[in-house]
Design a binder for these strands. Structure first.
Lengths: 118, 118
DNA sequence: ACGCTAATACGATAATCTACGTACTACGAC
DNA sequence: GTCGTAGTACGTAGATTATCGTATTAGCGT
């Protein structure tokens, strides 16, 4: 017996996403880096946790992904042995139009200013 | 002898304002309330700390205003016995175009959803 | 069954944050 | 100078957070 994975992950419904929670989730540099990475994958892009090279241990990485998920910023699903992550762009755009885009744009401007390429 | 107040307040220069800091400052409900209030005063609007009725004590209020100032979100100047506060709209708009507006808009949408009037 | 890889769970620690109360300073009015 | 108002400083308590290390679970391939 084994249908496609019993392991389910709790996500807030779109209407339960709170602005304060989203802002708090994005106010950490590591999490901002995660979101930047996912954003750059484009619409519907997704990636396993391990695809992002963060300067922290795996268990801390797990923690940050969970914060993002619980705030409603990303969606996580198990796919085989990996856990795929994707930005909840559409949900956030319906809920708070322009917010995610403005933050991404601000992040890009700041990185440019800080001397990062790309 | 008394020129216009020796008491000076430290503000980050525009180029020293960090996105993470702004997001963190705005991720607290009390501070979001402060910013909402200042926003509603319109361009160049300013108000003393005491103009906002927060459900916290005076010393905690001081703390929140300081967090906002140190993050670069508001400007504070002493004016007589009061301390006037104003959003740093222009600085933020130059630095991160659209960010403050998107957050304000998201805040308004969320409050509408929560059943507040206005 | 065994080993590999991806990710979680748990427990600990140190830092940060919100909030409070009390004591204090600065300014204006009297 | 004295009083009232606006706001600060300081110390502290309690909660949350970021980080780690180690042990563990889930799924895939052999």
């Amino acid at each position: 017996m084994s249908t496609s994975s019993v392991r389910a992950l709790e996500h807030p419904a779109r209407e339960d996403i709170r602005l304060e929670g989203v802002l708090h989730a994005l106010s950490d540099p590591m999490r901002l880096q995660i979101v930047r990475f996912l954003w750059q994958l484009g619409e519907d892009g997704e990636a396993p946790c391990s695809a992002i090279d963060l300067a922290i241990t795996k268990s801390t990485t797990t923690h940050h992904f969970r914060v993002l998920r619980e705030a409603g910023v990303i969606n996580q699903v198990y796919r085989g042995t990996a856990k795929m992550n994707a930005l909840r762009r559409r949900d956030l755009d319906v809920l708070f139009p322009g917010l995610l885009g403005a933050i991404q744009s601000a992040d890009a401007i700041q990185r440019e200013r800080d001397g990062h390429d790309g």
